[in-house]
């Protein structure tokens, strides 16, 4: 590997990159889950479509904010200050809770 720290943040542990990749994995997991929910459309009928709508929207939201998030983090780390991303965490967890609740509704009524 070339000597010198990676740019632009100079963190040899590549924390912003690893965190961006973790969001990317989560986005892919949401896309996979969306496809998976759609797979059972013949079994459950139209109500199951609520689930891929939520998981797909969450995946899209992550996709659209990835660049901005990475940029903020890598510049933040360069200045040794990163604000905890409270709203991203709360929205992601909320999506998971809503998916579970919709899933229970679909299973109970289906």
């Amino acid at each position: 590997m070339a000597s010198g720290a990676p740019r632009p943040h100079g963190d040899p542990g590549l924390q912003p990159e690893r965190t961006a990749l973790a969001w990317g994995r989560t986005m892919l997991a949401l896309v996979t889950a969306s496809a998976f929910f759609l797979r059972w459309l013949p079994t459950y009928g139209p109500p199951i479509l609520m689930l891929p709508a939520v998981s797909g929207a969450a995946a899209l939201a992550i996709y659209l904010t990835q660049r901005r998030r990475y940029r903020a983090r890598s510049h933040g780390l360069a200045g040794e200050s990163i604000e905890a991303d409270l709203s991203a965490v709360l929205w992601t967890a909320f999506a998971g809770v809503v998916l579970g609740a919709l899933g229970v509704v679909v299973v109970v009524t289906g």
């Binding site: 924390q15 973790a22 969001w23 989560t26 905890a84």
Partner: peptide, 16 residues
Amino acid sequence: PRFTLANERTFLAWIR
């Protein structure tokens, strides 16, 4: 800031 990012990655692993 590294701890904040590590905490976020752990959160995301639980979400997956």
